[in-house]
């Protein structure tokens, strides 16, 4: 579903002289005074040049933002209470100079140069709660090319982002049956060599110590399969946070796990899709 576009134009852009612009203006006034006192043409021209540049900069700074279209991108989900990424798409018909984006109360992100066409910008913000959340208001501003004016706009991105519960270490209910099977990875046992078997399997170290020729036997470590569910006796949200942490860890160890939550069950599996499905279930529970 494409999200609505926000176009930067005369109605949505605000512009005022920056503090540097004021100092610039004061400098021009000082130079004018010196020029009058000394009747120096060059100083007059420099003072007027400063004024001219200031006037021009007003249009150039405004131009730098005008015509940009903002759109929400497809953001991937993230954990609450951690900085997560929100994807914005900037569509500009012409190249732009340096501009700065940030969510209210968050660190700014600087774009040194905006090419013509679509540009994806990843902004970070820290959500407080799980579920579908909308980021704070977006602030887009620029002072280019001379820093004399500051031009800005505000926009509330409409598209919500899925926020998983915050990760917190803690107990979860975990049932994990173990089973063993033959494999090749772990050395397990020895048995006498039968004729025709490969030399690589012979325990040569033992032979050197004077033992008879013996063959090594191997086993694979057991593949654990776990079924996770919230730990009883904890506040609901806290139990979910523990689950989120456990799922994340199990996924990184590459283990197989399932999730049982309020009557919904996800069968044991592994992989990113499975992990995301489990976490989404937690986020919306």
């Amino acid at each position: 579903m494409p999200s609505p576009e926000f176009c930067l134009g005369l109605r949505t852009l605000y512009i005022i002289p920056s503090r540097f612009g004021m100092v610039w203006l004061a400098t021009a006034a000082l130079l004018l005074l010196v020029a009058i006192q000394t009747s120096s043409n060059s100083t007059f021209l420099i003072a007027f040049l400063l004024l001219g540049l200031m006037f021009l900069a007003m249009f150039l700074t405004h131009d730098n933002l005008q015509g940009i279209k903002l759109r929400c991108g497809e953001s991937s989900p993230g954990f609450a209470a951690e900085p997560i990424h929100y994807l914005l798409v900037l569509d500009s018909p012409t190249p732009r100079q340096r501009l700065q984006l940030r969510f209210q109360g968050q660190l700014p992100h600087q774009l040194d140069h905006l090419e013509a066409g679509e540009t994806r910008v990843v902004l970070s913000w820290t959500p407080g709660q799980r579920g579908w959340q909308v980021p704070p208001r977006l602030l887009l501003d620029c002072v280019a090319p001379l820093g004399l004016f500051i031009c800005w706009t505000r926009w509330q991105p409409p598209k919500p982002q899925l926020i998983w519960p915050a990760r917190r270490r803690g107990p979860v209910q975990d049932s994990s049956p173990h089973r063993l099977r033959d494999g090749l990875d772990e050395w397990n046992d020895l048995r006498p060599l039968r004729p025709g078997e490969r030399q690589a399997l012979v325990d040569w170290a033992g032979v050197a110590k004077g033992r008879p020729l013996q063959v090594k036997l191997f086993r694979d470590p057991g593949d654990a399969e776990r079924m996770l569910s919230p730990s009883a006796g904890l506040p609901w949200d806290e139990a979910l946070e523990h689950l989120a942490e456990r799922i994340w860890q199990l996924h990184h160890r590459g283990e197989r796990y399932g999730l049982k939550l309020r009557g919904r069950t996800l069968a044991p599996a592994s992989g990113i899709r499975h992990r995301d499905a489990c976490l989404a279930l937690l986020a919306l529970a």
Binding site: F20, V23, L30, V34, T43
Partner: peptide, 22 residues
């Protein structure tokens, strides 16, 4: 901000120089 201020100081001193040397 500092770099801009330096540029402005340079312009100002140029203006003063222009008033003295023509």
């Amino acid at each position: 901000v500092d770099y801009r201020l330096v540029a402005l100081l340079q312009l100002l001193s140029t203006g003063l120089l222009a008033a003295q040397m023509e």
